[in-house]
Amino acid sequence: MSDNNDKKGIIRGIPHDTIEQSLPILAVFVAILVAVGGIVEIVPAFYLDDAEPKVEGVRPLTPLELEGFAIYRREGCFLCHSQMIRPFRDEKERFGHFSLAAESKYDHNYAWGSKRTGPDIARLGKKYTDAWHIQHMRAPRSVVPESVMPNYAWLEETKLDTSRTKGRMEVLAMMNVPYSADDISNWESDLKAQAAVDDGNGEDALRARYERKTWTNSNGEVEQWTDSFTPTPLNVRAFDADASDVTELDALIAYLQQLGTHVHFEEGVDYYHDKFGQPYRK
């Protein structure tokens, strides 16, 4: 701390000597300075419409898919699989259309991942059959010899714990995921209907709820899709090929089979910029 009495210091006019002799001044400067970057980069996205261009078709997960998402998170799948396709030619060839911001707008927590030890699965839905997924979860190397994925044999042996399903939906509804009171109160029949463990009577009600075009969140904000848009049909079946009970594998495959299928991409439409360079809006 030698030459700081030199008044022609690099930072002219600010007496650094004063700053570093006063804990309150130093502390306040630091506290303010470290806050700037985060505020500038994070806060505007909450207010700018351009940050998340609107697109039709993105719906909240059904109770069964939501449980599948929780298993995806519990097993740490996101550590090796990304769900964010970048706008590059090779990624389009390999994984499909690049991911849109709105496609993950209901994802608490986001599941984009940061590493591809395995492939991106943002558009995995309907790419493989349930039978493939069942075998792949039991023994990944039996279908992909090069794979380094662990075996997840316990998923099909474990009955799905549904004690938190309603709670999950209630918490998400609080955070403006547009689950209606009706969606939440019917969670159990919807869950069973989608896994085809009921008598088949629940399917119509389930489809009516999750193939609807009007979504209202707890703030009263309404998202209305156009008449010409047909929402992607739900997958309703015994995903683990066993209709006797709902297993964790049912939930996980239900989640995987809907990934990236909500938006209907049209040939020739630029979902990134319109011709004026503005983000796409429909």
């Binding site: 709105a102 993950s104 707008k105 608490h108 986001y110 984009w112 955070m175």
Partner: peptide, 10 residues
Amino acid sequence: YSAYAGIHDA
């Protein structure tokens, strides 16, 4: 559940 979703959570 995180208080943020999608791009904000990221």
